[in-house]
């Protein structure tokens, strides 16, 4: 990423004010350096893939079962899991969509609310720090405790069970993602580069200018740090809150139903779906971060 920013000199100054320290001095990038970077990239990608394939082979050939002392009943073979996914693709997609809507809506509201809290805390620092401590206490409440409570609290929201349990699930995700975002937003808005605030003051910048031209840009990398935690977190929250929801839908609920009914192969198909959802959303986030923050990290 460092290489790119050095190629864009006009951006350099604006970047410097907000950028992290390592980026300040960019050496000339020789071609050899670039090649090494690509090779490094390749191996970082290759090792996990080789490891994953190895595990899959051990799993399918049941060596893994012998190592773990499991049987093919509780740990079904990958082939069977994939067959179930292929056979039930429309239904699995329908459940995955329900979970994705909950996770993403909750993530959106939670992150916006969290950022707003961060802003309030940064504007009123005396109250802010105390307030954020209280907010972060929310993080200590287990989702398992929050989900049924919110389920009961949203009973009057709608006569339609699908709507009200959707709201309850979204609220759980909102609550959890809000906390992560508010703390990171506060840090991003207040942990400025040394002297940068003084520099702005020497320009006779108004408080609003300092806020929009220094604090907000400074918070963007922190925003992504928060999202790196809350994107996978939102999927997990959505899965768990589905356990308690009134309306029976979603990947999490299907995992529970199938495990209680001792249908482990089907449960594994949904577990795999949940994993893929989390990985996909995380990959989208990384891609977005890579393209939006180029030259920043």
């Amino acid at each position: 990423m460092n290489l790119r920013s050095s190629m864009n000199p006009p951006e350099e100054i604006s970047v410097r004010i907000a950028a992290t320290q390592q980026d300040v001095s960019n050496p000339e990038a020789p071609a050899a350096d670039r090649r090494r970077f690509d090779a490094e990239n390749l191996t970082t990608l290759l090792y996990p893939i080789v490891f994953g394939v190895l595990i899959l082979i051990l799993w399918q050939t049941q060596v893994l079962h012998r190592i773990l002392g499991a049987d093919t009943f509780t740990l079904p073979l990958p082939g069977r899991i994939l067959t179930i996914i292929a056979d039930n693709a429309p239904e699995i997609l329908m459940n995955a969509r329900a979970t994705a809507i909950v996770a993403l809506t909750g993530l959106l509201f939670g992150s916006m609310l969290g950022y707003l809290l961060g802003v309030i805390a940064a504007v009123f620092p005396k109250w802010g720090i105390g307030g954020l401590t209280v907010v972060s206490a929310f993080n200590a409440i287990p989702i398992i405790a929050v989900a049924p409570i919110l389920n009961n609290l949203t009973k009057d929201f709608s006569r339609d069970a699908d709507t009200r349990s959707m709201l309850a699930k979204i609220l759980v995700v909102t609550l959890m993602t809000m906390v992560v975002m508010s703390i990171n937003a506060y840090r991003g808005l207040t942990e400025l580069k040394p002297y940068s605030e003084d520099l702005m003051k020497s320009y006779a910048a108004r408080r609003t200018d300092v806020f929009f031209k220094l604090r907000v840009p400074n918070s963007v990398p922190f925003l992504f740090t928060a999202l790196r935690v809350s994107v996978p977190g939102s999927v997990i929250c959505a899965l768990v809150s589905e356990y308690f929801a009134e309306y029976i839908v979603g990947v999490g609920r299907q995992i529970r139903e199938n495990i209680v009914l001792a249908q482990y192969a089907t449960a594994w198909a949904y577990i795999l779906t949940a994993c893929l959802m989390g990985i996909l959303l995380y990959a989208i986030l990384l891609a977005a971060e890579g393209s939006l923050l180029k030259g920043r990290r």
Partner: peptide, 10 residues
């Protein structure tokens, strides 16, 4: 220059 940086961020 900073305002340009800001707009990019926005």
């Amino acid at each position: 220059k900073t305002s340009k940086g800001k707009s990019i961020n926005l």
